[in-house]
Amino acid sequence: MRGSVLGLFLLYLFGAFALEHAPMPEMISWLQPAWVMLVVTIMVLLAPQVFGLWLAFPIGLLMDVEQGTLIGVHVLLVAIHIVILQLLYRRIYLFNVLQQSLVIFLMIMAERIVQYWTTAMVDSQAMPVPMLWPALISAVIWPWIYALLYRPLRRMQ
């Protein structure tokens, strides 16, 4: 993989963490898409041989610190995200964008459920996790992410 592509990945990740933090009006704060997960999706789809499960540790830990969750939750979630993509990426290449959106929706929904389950296992006072809307909004913006961030990189390779 070329250095410029790697640099772009780092830039994307930086942007995703910034957006994850961006101040939103109280009314629509639950519409925040799972930016980092979308960037992880791009990275794994572009270079499945390079970005394996090891990626879950740095990104998951950073997300845990950023969101103030228990250390390890997001490591597990990113690991699940990556492993599903690793198992499915050949099929996802053949899907059209809408089918890919559906996959993204199901994955993020499933991860939110896992997040709630694992937190509830450890912490008896766990709060519910917003599930439906973040997954839906991530799926809705996936076509744009695909066209603006994924396709140009695909052509660069």
Partner: peptide, 11 residues
């Protein structure tokens, strides 16, 4: 990873 994560979460 799930086992490690659950352990670190508990800790």
């Amino acid at each position: 990873i799930a086992i490690i994560a659950l352990t670190t979460m508990w800790v």
